[in-house]
Design a binder for these strands. Structure first.
Lengths: 336, 336
DNA sequence: CTGAAAGCGCTTACAG
DNA sequence: CTGAAAGCGCTTACAG
């Protein structure tokens, strides 16, 4: 009964100490001062378990991502965590390692810890796992799961905007022959990116040549192989857009290995703008995924729900092109 | 009183349910089965707050790192978290962003959450903050804080081994003129790396030329500038060792920019082996920091302390050279 | 403005 | 092998 000790020392009841602790109004200023002094003198820290047990809330949020080792996520985690800390919320986080079965397990762990809310920021989401959270009364927010946009709060990212900007940049440079490195089409997010790219292409009246689309595993290795395949085509595209930066880096390596100079012989554009994008040579032009904003939206959404406030339907976020040095006019072409 | 519901349904007391839940021996098998069924039927999940309040332990560990965005850390976090999960421990983690004052704040938060133990895996540690944890009765483990090696459990990493291997590799290639890109000497860890390098150099009877040592900020930008400074020297070193990979990447960029070919004109070796090290062109030879092992040692140490078991004084861990493509014999030299 | 007291959901000696 | 009951440290109607 540690609050009791404080109460004794300050000559008040535990109720009053509690009121001071929680900043409730209507405590005499002198009393507040006395209690504060006692707290300070005793170096008292309230027991969060006792509080949570009473109040039924833990002030902990869960954050589930696909993979900590993927450079896409640290910034998102960082942003989410900072926002949470500012509200006195602790976040426990886990990752699925891209395995849907592990999502189940992650959510289970969150429920067992009785977090107040969960942000599921994975690229793939299996609905059954979410239901478990909902059944346990824990609100959930997702990242860009269009299939479940109506049923669960969802932070949407409009990939098309980014691809359109990339395309317009390439067109302005004079490119017409544009290839694409897609991710595994079994993955929602990879499919979404490919669809957005082909949509943007079609909007500009360009033909989608299936032999200029290669598929990689979303990692550097896959980008390398996909690029090798693309370089073997005849005719070849003069520019390549990859569905993520890791594959763009792989593409760059494959180009190097084949003595194809980037951007002189071939332009490359990535997606995400992870830190490595600017560290390779040449620094990659890429489409910046607004992941800090995604984290912010996700947190705010949960925070509102937890507080019982209305949640507005947000406008989607837009990725934007960042131009660096991996793009140039096609060899021997003039700018239009 | 949720355990009560289970108890009623199973026709036992809450004590028995609790025993089953915690796998205590000495419950009749039939009773166990009955209780388990009731638990399953009711989809019952114990309240961790109530348990923690009673038992005085939360089964949560704190993990404090310098910076999530630094590619050095995700692997460490991942490894620590996996080990913890295997023991049913949840980890809450925060980062100091290299600011010692934030360490104080991080530890404070951990205390408020009453974690059972804290791993402080930052490059810099300020002892006052640690004392607060100790006073709160929370065990702590550090990463490579030689200054406090006697006072706090500490996972040591013997940098010298790594530098010695790097040096021997360069010597074998025929290099004699070896430069170094150090980090800010106000930082413990940077100082440690520089000392280890010069020690290794001296062990091989090589002279440490101060004009071949440049200082960077441990980030890409700093590596670039340091390399520019080194390239301006006359004579120039034929090989450069950097105190971390980010600076090695910067050095690589500066070399590119100055049309110095790596490894033909200049060899570069990094430190840490973060993912980007193998993604740049040419892939960096680097000294691999055993951070998964560090995480494992740290977790095991805390786990033992928490269980009241003896902690042995561990042998230090050793980083080892990973040879890739950024090293070659010096221009015009023969292998010895 | 303040206090007495119930109760959140568990675990754990203690008793049988 | 099992149960009755105390108590972990808070918060919060309720009463004054």
């Amino acid at each position: 009964m540690d609050i009791l000790q404080v109460a004794k020392r300050a000559n008040v009841s535990t109720a009053t100490v509690s009121r001071v602790l929680n900043g409730f109004p209507g405590v005499r200023e002198k009393t507040v001062a006395r209690v504060r002094r006692a707290i300070a003198e005793m170096n008292y820290v309230p027991n969060p378990n006792a509080r949570s047990l009473r109040v039924g809330r833990t002030r902990m949020f869960g954050l589930i991502v696909s993979d900590v080792n993927n450079p896409f996520f640290p910034e998102l985690i960082d942003a989410f965590e900072a926002l949470a800390a500012a509200e006195g919320i602790e976040v426990i986080f886990t990752h699925t390692n891209y395995d849907p079965r592990r999502l189940h397990n992650c959510i289970r762990r969150m429920i067992e810890r009785s977090v107040d809310a969960i942000a599921v920021m994975t690229s793939e989401v299996e609905e059954d796992s979410l239901k478990e959270a909902i059944n346990a009364g824990i609100p959930v927010v997702l990242m860009n799961q269009r299939a479940m946009a109506g049923k669960y709060p969802n932070v949407l990212v409009e990939y098309t905007t980014g691809f359109r900007e990339a395309l317009e940049h390439l067109l302005a440079l004079g490119h017409r022959d544009i290839g694409f490195i897609a991710g595994p089409q079994s993955l929602n997010s990879a499919r979404g990116r490919k669809d957005a790219f082909t949509a943007a292409l079609r909007d500009h009246g360009l033909h989608v040549r299936s032999e200029w689309i290669a598929i990689g595993d979303m990692r550097v290795e896959g980008g390398r192989k996909a690029m090798d395949a693309l370089l073997a085509r005849n005719p070849r595209p003069t520019a390549i857009v990859a569905s993520n930066d890791l594959m763009a880096v792989g593409a760059l390596q494959a180009a190097h290995a084949s003595r194809v100079r980037v951007p002189r012989d071939l332009s490359i554009i990535g997606f995400d703008d992870v830190p490595i994008a600017s560290m390779v040579h040449p620094p990659l032009s890429t489409i910046r995924h607004p992941r800090r904003e995604v984290a912010a939206r996700a947190f705010e959404c949960l925070w509102k729900i937890v507080q019982g406030r209305e949640i507005a339907v947000d406008q989607p976020l837009h990725p934007h092109l960042v131009i660096r040095n991996s793009t140039a006019p096609p060899a021997g072409a003039k700018r239009r």
